[in-house]
């Protein structure tokens, strides 16, 4: 037998309300979507739960609404469906491009939008077997007292490496959240904080129901660097958006994943572009980008390389969009 999963009970709710209710009252309960992150982590012993709430039977989460002005993508929509949807590809190219390069084909058939946005942070000291972590006295993120990446500090630096978030940030996404008493909407960027051990701002038992994207005319693109192009997580992932304006130069947005404990929407791009595109524009953008990301030694590639590579990917994508 495979390394058996610890004991838990499984709830299979049919509605969002039932799912949220199933979470209340259970000690350590977790939502289970495609399981391509959660089940891996449970098998490795880095996530424990005594109840799993399986979201795959909830029809509302499969909603994909492209008819109106904006777009609604349910949290349960599969990554493969996002990657293959021609309408998403036309309206929000970076979103489809990001979905298409997440993990391998089997994961994309199983993994969901909600699971990707709520993906756990990752680190070479964390995503390891029990005996490996024990030999290291564990780490600050789980069971230990020290972050081996920055032992003098008091925080965990594990980066968030979901590919969809930066692409959705470029397009001004909001998320719809269900809690015990009500539903609310907030900017996607407010879902995250820069703490690798606790990077989501969701309240106890809150469930991501859907992503709402405004109708916009941003053109966009996504790319990432990784060790194996066939399957790996981003060591730095970059989404770029470009919008032509009637007067003045184009507007530009850049967002990154894989570098920090939260996805980063780079600030101050408008100032760098104030005089339109010329030879000095990219160096000005590059300076801002490099200053605002803080990759650490959390992966097999070193931090300075990831910072430099992120800027190179951004530059290539900008060139592609300005084209």
């Amino acid at each position: 037998m495979s390394e058996a999963l610890p004991e838990f009970d499984l709830a299979r709710p049919a509605t969002v309300e039932e799912a949220v209710a199933a979470r209340a009252g259970a000690g350590d309960a977790r939502y289970l979507a495609g399981g391509t992150d959660l089940v891996v982590n449970m098998r490795r012993g880095i996530v424990a739960a005594d109840r799993l709430i399986d979201l795959t039977g909830i029809a509302e989460l499969d909603r994909l609404d492209l008819d109106g002005g904006g777009t609604v993508i349910g949290a349960g929509v599969k990554l493969a469906a996002v990657a293959e949807n021609a309408e998403i590809g036309a309206r929000y190219p970076a979103v489809a491009e990001a979905a298409a390069v997440i993990a391998g084909p089997q994961h994309r058939k199983m993994g969901t939008v909600g699971g990707n946005l709520c993906l756990d942070t990752r680190c070479v000291y964390y995503n390891q077997s029990e005996w490996w972590r024990r030999a290291n006295d564990y780490c600050l993120k789980y069971r230990g007292n020290v972050c081996h990446v920055a032992p003098g500090g008091d925080r965990c630096w594990a980066p968030f490496s979901g590919d969809l978030a930066p692409a959705l940030l470029i397009h001004g996404a909001e998320i719809e959240i269900a809690g015990a008493d009500d539903r609310r909407r907030m900017a996607l960027s407010d879902l995250y904080t820069d703490d690798g051990a606790d990077h989501l701002t969701l309240g106890d038992g809150e469930l991501v129901v859907a992503v709402h994207l405004p109708a916009d005319n941003w053109r966009s693109a996504y790319d990432k660097i990784r060790v194996r192009d066939s399957i790996d997580f981003p060591l730095a992932g970059v989404a770029v958006g470009l919008k032509e304006r009637a007067t003045g130069g184009p507007e530009l947005r850049i967002a990154l994943t894989g570098t920090d404990s939260r996805p980063v929407l780079v600030d101050g791009i408008a100032e760098a572009l104030a005089d339109g595109f010329d030879d000095s524009t990219f160096p000005a953008i590059e300076k801002r980008l490099k200053k605002q990301v803080q990759p650490m030694s959390t992966t097999t590639l070193n931090a300075p390389y990831r910072r430099t590579a992120a800027a190179v990917v951004a530059k290539r994508l900008i060139a592609r969009l300005v084209g």
Binding site: G35, V39, V40, G104, K109, M110, S129
Partner: peptide, 26 residues
């Protein structure tokens, strides 16, 4: 030990999926 290799791939309703990350009950 989970999700990396594809050796456990089976078809679930005709789609290749990883049986090592799937709960039978789900």
């Amino acid at each position: 030990d989970g999700g990396e290799c594809g050796a456990c791939t089976v078809l679930v309703d005709g789609e290749p999926q990883l049986s090592c990350l799937t709960l039978a009950a789900s």
